[in-house]
């Protein structure tokens, strides 16, 4: 059993959770993820490890409530225990002193880009971070990101805070301003990552994305998470989750993510939280 040590709502639907998992904490590197279950009749869902503490034997996850399982998870409290947490999974992020690295995070993706920015900063990279959300109330980890970045730029879609517009526009402005960028890491909703890749492609700036396809086991045995990268089928859980964004078939990823839309709605409606999919 994996005890929940701490739970905080970062925003209305974004939750940070510290979980006791000493073996995972010991092994984990930036970019890796876990698969967890909230109950024995539950499903297995992947979540990135945002932070870990070897001394305390804990890992930290950040997730957004988007369906039944994340809603169930958000209802659990410190002292409760998760029956199953498997990890660390996937390859760690390739971290070295690239020169200037730009970390672009959108929505709950900021939680995933945070450990990467922190690791890059440690190696001596100049880290410029661009974080965004639909609206100010959904923005997370601004202070934390500031601490691990040389420069932090914030955008909201509705202009309620920071730059009015998408993070992609902020990146475009940064490129236009003459900033020499050696590598971009981008994590967030698929449309956002796709647009960021379109921004960097003409300049040949290597852009790493962390993909979020549907997963079941997370160990390479099923291919639910298969994506097309450079025309080849790859399994995100074993070969990824990070890939060269300029090689990724985002259209395929988007349509495969929709495979269970109807059932996800049905599951949410029948879930005990009574929130009826809202």
């Amino acid at each position: 059993m994996y005890r929940i040590i701490e739970k905080t709502f970062l925003q209305e639907i974004v939750v940070k959770m510290v979980i006791e998992a000493p073996e995972i904490a010991k092994k984990r590197r930036a970019g890796q993820f876990v698969i967890l279950m909230t109950e024995d009749t539950g499903e297995r869902i992947p979540l990135t490890i945002v932070d870990s503490d070897v001394q305390k034997g804990t890992i930290t996850i950040i997730f957004q409530i988007v369906g039944k399982t994340t809603a169930d998870l958000a209802k659990m409290n410190a002292g409760d225990a998760l029956p199953h947490v498997l990890g660390p999974l996937g390859h760690a992020t390739e971290i070295e002193d690239f020169g200037t690295a730009v970390c672009v995070g959108g929505g709950v993706g900021v939680g995933v880009v945070y450990p990467i920015a922190a690791a890059l900063k440690k190696t001596g990279c100049k880290v410029i971070s661009i974080i965004g959300a639909r609206t100010k109330d959904l923005l997370i980890l601004e202070e934390e990101m500031k601490k691990v970045s040389d420069q932090l730029l914030v955008a909201t879609d509705d202009g309620s805070y920071g730059f009015h517009g998408f993070v992609s526009a902020v990146l475009q402005n940064l490129i236009d301003s003459g900033e020499k960028i050696d590598r971009v890491f981008t994590i967030g909703p698929v449309p956002m990552m796709r647009v960021i890749c379109n921004v960097t492609r003409p300049y040949g700036i290597k852009t790493i994305v962390s993909l979020n396809p549907i997963m079941v086991d997370g160990t390479g045995m099923c291919g639910a998470c298969r994506v097309s990268v450079g025309g080849e089928t790859r399994f995100t859980c074993v070969d990824g989750p990070e890939f060269d964004g300029h090689q990724v078939d985002f259209g395929l990823l988007t349509s495969r993510l929709r495979m269970y839309c109807d059932q996800e709605k049905q599951s949410m409606e029948s879930c005990r939280c009574g929130c009826h999919g809202k």
């Binding site: 009749t41 086991d217 639910a224 599951s267």
Partner: peptide, 27 residues
């Protein structure tokens, strides 16, 4: 979409009991 490996199809059905969805959460 709609194309499975047998491993995924059977894992969903057998291990995750997707045939009893939504009582079990895996679709």
């Amino acid at each position: 979409s709609g194309i499975y490996s047998a491993n995924e199809y059977l894992t969903r059905s057998n291990l995750m009991k997707a045939y009893r969805f939504p009582e079990y959460a895996t679709p």
